[in-house]
Structure formats: C-alpha cells, structure tokens
Design a protein around this nucleic acid. Structure first.
Ligand SMILES: [Mn+2]
Ligand SMILES: [Mn+2]
Ligand SMILES: [Zn+2]
Ligand SMILES: [Zn+2]
Lengths: 137, 137
DNA sequence: GAACATATTTAGAATAGTTCTAAAGATATA
DNA sequence: TATATCTTTAGAACTATTCTAAATATGTTC
C-alpha cells in the first residue's frame, strides 16, 4: 500500500513543495511517506531518534508543521486521542477507526456516498466521515 | 431550540443519572443544558465564575466529566480546536462547522444518509459526519 | 572557496488544556 | 449527632505542542 521512494525522489518532492531538503527532513519523509501509518509526532520522534544520529523534538515538530504547510501531509485530530495524527494521504478521503487495535484505515472518497438534506443556507466545502468499529481479522 | 428547565427538573435529571445534585452541578447544568451551544470547559468556567459566588476550575472539569460519564453530555473533539467541546445533544447526530463564525450546528441523524461500500471485514458501530463550510445569513 | 546572508536545528523554557493531590467542606445515613 | 462518603478546592503536575535565542548548516555572491 505504501510507496517506496529513494532519497533523491524525496528530495525532489520537498524541493517541488518549496521545502529545503535537509537531512532531518529527508529522513522524516522517508518514514512518514514510505513506512508509517497515520503516525503521531511522538511516533515520528521515536523513529527518528532510533534511526538518526541525533534529532531534537523541536525539529520533529518543525518538520511536521513544514510538511503540513507545504501540503505534503495533513494533520488530523480525532476523537480518541488528543495527539495530532499525520496523514500522508492528501486526497479527500474518509476514515475507519478500529477501536480494538487503535488503527486508522483510509477509505477512498468514492467508497462513501453522503446524501444530505441540509437547509439551503448551509454551504458545504468539505465532508468528512469517521466510521468507528472493529475490523475482523 | 434549547430547552428550559427549572432547578427542580435539573435536580431530578441529575439524580436519575446517578449524579449528586450539588449547587455547582445544578448551576453548570442550567448553563450547558439550557443556554450554551457546544461550549468548551473554558466557556463553562467563565460563565460559572460570573454567575456563581465562587467555583474552581477543578470543579468545572470534574463536573463536565461527571456529566459525560453519566450520559447527560457528550464530549466532542473536532479538527479546528484542541479544546474538548461539550454537546448536550446525546442522540446520534452529525455536525456542520461554520468556519467563518466558528459555530457548530447539529444535524439530526435522519437528515444525512451515508452509503458505504466497505469490505465485509469492517464492522461499523458508529458513523459520524462532519460538514465544514459556511452558513449564509 | 571566502564572506556573507538566510534558513534550520537545537536545548530548554514556556504555554495550553486538562488531570491529579490532598486537605477542607458538604451531604447523606444511622 | 456521629460517622462515613462525596464533593470542592488551590495549587501542583502532566501531556502535547510551541517558542526563544543561540549554534549550525546551507545557499549565494564575488
Ligand atoms: Mn502550522
Ligand atoms: Mn472521563
Ligand atoms: Zn487518512
Ligand atoms: Zn452536537
């Protein structure tokens, strides 16, 4: 499901998005774009501190914010935790939260059809659906 | 839209829910059940400190948690803020967030029809839709 | 490549929202 | 009234995140 990217490809993505490709940012992208599944900043920090010589918490947060601002990631805030969750799926899509495992699944937009009868004065820009339940093995 | 309740009615609701009806709790219920619209704990505290002789922040949080645990309120966590939002509408329902005003509107469950084609292993317990946009005057 | 400007990283302090602690006060029960 | 149980409280603690300001790295110009 996750894509595989060379450091060069990541570097290009960052440059194209107007983000200077530092060592720390490339490494974090490697994790969030190619490995992680809806990680929190804490998970990114844990991974980075194990896989890089040295990286500070501030850099992790700075990088996550830079990636969100550049449009390479989205920040999610969901009911089950107060931590921000980062999503490398930047398409419009929906989510399924497995309350047994805590895992979050992406649901492609076209799998969900939301029909609403809202009064005309409600002008909708975005619709997001969160399913909660469990996923059978 | 909001209901009007006498202190006696509030007292009964609390007792029925197994919550001892203290002065602080009755007052807070008066606000959250009869006046407020999706308030945060901070808004409840501000109201309470203006309208009661004296009340501590801890009591406001304790009370909000007690009311949620008793099923009289629901706690919402939405993308636009990191503060918990309290909802006196305990029915299943959806929300419309007006990004201009910051106001949150309840959408009755029956106004929204969500049709999903999820793989069979996804067993859904709850579906929540968040619309974002603006409400024309 | 030296000199300079600009951007990034960093440790640690600060902040925001909420919960915890433990002592004092209130309420219910006998 | 005595006693047990709950509730309230001030302030400390906690968690997630942001800020500060100094050090380091990177990009740019000659
Ligand atoms: Mn940001
Ligand atoms: Mn609780
Ligand atoms: Zn996603
Ligand atoms: Zn609501």
């Amino acid at each position: 499901m996750k894509i595989s990217l060379t450091p060069q490809e990541i570097e290009k993505r960052l440059m194209d998005a107007g983000v200077q490709p530092t060592l720390q940012r490339i490494a974090i992208c490697r994790y969030v774009l190619c490995e992680a599944d809806h990680p929190t900043a804490e998970q990114v920090k844990d991974w980075a501190q194990q896989n890089l010589d040295k990286i500070s918490q501030a850099t992790v947060y700075n990088t996550m914010n830079a990636l969100v601002d550049a449009g390479l990631l989205r920040a999610l805030r969901l009911p089950h935790t107060e931590k921000v969750i980062y999503d490398d799926n930047i398409e419009d899509h929906h989510h399924f939260f497995d309350e047994e495992t805590g895992r979050l699944y992406d649901l492609p937009e076209e799998q969900i059809d939301v029909r609403s009868k809202l009064p005309k004065k409600f002008k909708t820009n975005r619709v997001e659906v969160l399913f909660t339940g469990k996923v059978e093995d």
